[in-house]
Design a protein around this nucleic acid. Structure first.
Lengths: 255, 255
DNA sequence: TCAGGAAAGTGAACGGTGTAAACCGTAAAC
DNA sequence: GTTTACGGTTTACACCGTTCACTTTCCTGA
């Protein structure tokens, strides 16, 4: 019986074909979501000229399809968050974070269904596959990277490991969340805790706005979001930059 | 043709019967959710010994049923949040808010589907009925009440109307969100803005935890939640009370 | 008291969903 | 060149929300 195929061998013809079909499935799914249609196996299958049961050759279940699509959407969206930051100079670390956060918010409001798929999909009770999906989420990597850039630039105060609750210390030393911590020395891991605090607040406003559980006029004006971001900025040593950061944020709000 | 029936007339027999059936529908729906089953018209109908189409005599659509159940769940859950506060003396205004907030969090984690129904149900695109549901949400009333109690007790600083962005000023003067503002003088309406900030942060942690998009160990320990609440407490003039408030919160975490 | 009518409930049906099983042709693998 | 396994279809099942036609039941007004 053959061992696992050569790791670095070129993909066989079938494998390439299979990969292409999967890409087609994801593309059709995203197109459906963008159209405002429901994401369903039958709709996806019809769009790529197949019958629904055939999809089970590529996807174990409907939830599996959702996870796959969510992952792809997340990486694609993260690319736009990064692109928003790249419109600013590399040394404007605070501005870049604000730009990405704002782009995140704008994306969420413009694609609430996609946001729901990626960021409001219960992961709690599911198996390890869905858990590891969480740690692979790329948007988390982007924001941790940007946070670290800010910290490297201005050295804002970060809690010492000994000042953290035991469970928090455990979590920042060996995180189960999407975060690029390999480049952060263990004694500086308090930075990850700051990230979690910031992510919680960003997620809070955006989820609140997307689900519409707040005054629509404040969603329209963006004041609630601006306040949330600027309210956290001082924690990152950006207190002196607030007016400038607000301009950066508001510039992205209207487009 | 008869006008609308006398407003204060006692309900006729049919009306009482109808009311009872609606209550039965809600009870069956809540029982389904509590069992972990899916909420469906057919399941609800079967549980109360009816067929699915009969439910349309009481509910206009599935979404309408969801809204109805969500409303009832919200008021029932709010009662438990209030009960948690009532275990503390009336003059411990800060402790009471912490108790209610913690009870809210515990309830959300224990009943994620109910939480999703009430607090993560898109309201944006729907009609006015769903909008007004938002302004009727009772949990918002509880928290605004408790916030006002704190403010009356210790008079923490509140932004002046003139310091608020125009849209925010508009929103706090004539709010479209669940908030009991009738008893708050217009010049003190900055308090409502503080409430929105607090609600945003509370909602953020809880939603993040419920959806599992964070380290499960931090959900288990509750450190993220404690940090979020204590992080906002100073805004409410409770900076000197943090250790005591933390004890109040943690006491409710484990049960 | 009795007829009329509205309200409540049933059954069948339509179009939709995810999913399982049986089946088949074709392309890859030995 | 045979064999195997992959990718696909067809059929079917058990659900779902919703509509329609029909019946039963109960309240009401003359």
């Amino acid at each position: 019986m053959p061992l696992a195929p050569e790791p670095t061998t070129e993909p066989t013809r079938r494998e390439r074909q299979r990969e292409a079909t999967i890409a087609e499935i994801v593309a059709a799914s995203r197109a459906l979501l963008a159209d405002g249609s429901e994401l369903s196996l039958r709709a996806v299958a019809a769009r790529i000229g197949m019958t629904a049961p055939a999809l089970y050759r590529y996807v174990a279940s409907y939830q599996d399809l959702v996870d796959l699509v969510a992952y792809e959407i997340d990486t694609a969206a993260t690319a736009t968050f990064a692109a928003a930051a790249d419109l600013l100079p590399v040394d404007d670390v605070g501005g870049r974070l604000c730009a990405s956060a704002t782009e995140f918010r704008q994306w969420a409001l413009a694609s609430p269904r996609e946001f729901g798929l990626v960021f409001a999909n219960p992961i709690a009770d599911a198996a390890c596959v869905r858990r590891e999906m969480l740690t692979l989420s790329s948007s988390g990597h982007l924001f941790t990277d940007q946070l670290r850039a800010i910290w490297l630039a201005n050295g804002f105060p970060v809690p010492a490991l000994d000042d953290l609750p035991p469970t928090v210390r455990e979590s920042v030393l060996d995180p189960l969340i999407p975060a690029k911590v390999d480049g952060i020395a263990p004694e500086d891991r308090g930075l990850v805790w700051v990230y979690m605090q910031g992510w919680t607040r960003l997620y809070g406003v955006v989820a609140l706005e997307v689900f519409g559980h707040t005054d629509p006029r404040l969603i329209e004006s963006g004041d609630m979001f601006v306040d949330a971001v600027l309210g956290f900025a001082p924690t990152l040593g950006l207190a002196d930059d607030l007016p400038r950061l607000e301009r950066i944020i508001r510039r992205r709000l209207t487009r």
